[in-house]
């Protein structure tokens, strides 16, 4: 897992982190029933940051990013996305969801719609973009993820890697300012992981604010500007990737890294 994700030189010219805060999470707590999944999470994400969240399974990393677009509800503390605080106000939630793109482990494409329809659905119905324009945008992003020729097929006809790239394109069609990735490569065959990671790297090169839950440590090393390690619902350690991998501080982090990089 420690080997390089991409063999090409990453273009870092547009990877700039501004002082503008994109996401501000403070003292956020979440319970599933009586189980305390997330405990006192404090996290500030600046625009243009590429954050990789790592940790053992059950550590709450997926729950954390799912809280950011309110797929999960937090019970205490606050989450402010793009200046809007997440509350039970439905208008706020829909607004934030259309600003924040998300890719899932299992893609969650809509199997009854073609690739193109998957990509134009939300722009047409949420953003009220005219159909022609939405289709042009969709084709633009499908070209970007290198599958414009599949536009009229259905998701079931595509490979896992292609489906995940469509899912990324579908999110991009909403022109999000933040992208969340929830283990985007975990359900893929090894051959297909690279094509998805390449797409994500291109996105990073364009300066997209990204939060990725992933086990791809090569990707973390090359692309992330910050790696967050979570365990038992808490942020245990965060650092620049170089320091994080070469000089981990917490014994939990050391153990985790030795387990996942050891073989």
């Amino acid at each position: 897992m420690s080997e390089l994700t991409t063999d090409r030189e990453i273009d870092r010219s547009k990877m700039q982190i501004s002082d503008e805060v994109a996401i501000e999470i403070s003292k956020m707590n979440k319970w599933y029933g009586t189980f305390h999944v997330l405990r006192d999470i404090d996290l500030t994400v600046y625009r243009g940051e590429r954050i990789v969240i790592a940790g053992p399974s059950g550590s709450g990393k997926s729950t954390l990013i799912r809280c950011i677009n309110r797929l999960e509800e937090h019970q205490a503390g606050s989450i402010v996305v793009d200046g809007t605080e997440l509350s039970s106000d439905l208008k706020n939630i829909d607004k934030i969801r259309s600003e924040v793109g998300m890719c899932f482990q299992h893609f969650n494409l809509f199997p009854h719609l073609t690739i193109l329809e998957n990509c134009t659905l939300a722009p047409i119905w949420v953003r009220k973009v005219p159909k022609k324009e939405a289709e042009a945008t969709a084709m633009h992003f499908l070209e970007k993820v290198k599958i414009p020729d599949q536009a009229h097929k259905y998701p079931g006809m595509l490979s896992g890697g292609q489906q995940q790239r469509v899912a990324i394109a579908r999110s991009l069609c909403m022109k999000p300012r933040i992208m969340l990735f929830d283990e985007p490569t975990s359900a893929l065959d090894p051959e297909m992981i690279k094509e998805v990671l390449d797409t994500m790297i291109e996105l990073a090169e364009e300066g997209m604010t990204m939060l990725c839950v992933t086990h791809e440590m090569g990707f973390a090393r090359q692309v992330a500007n910050r790696v967050i390690f979570m365990d038992q619902g808490q942020i245990v350690e965060q650092n620049e990737p170089e320091e994080f991998f070469n000089n981990p501080q917490s014994p939990r982090t050391k153990l985790f890294l030795s387990q996942i990089l050891g073989h």
Binding site: N69, L71, D94, V100, F104, L109, A122, V126, M174
Partner: peptide, 12 residues
């Protein structure tokens, strides 16, 4: 995931 996919795109 279908509900989540729809939710994440901002569909009401």
């Amino acid at each position: 995931g279908q509900y989540e996919g729809a939710d994440s795109l901002g569909l009401d």
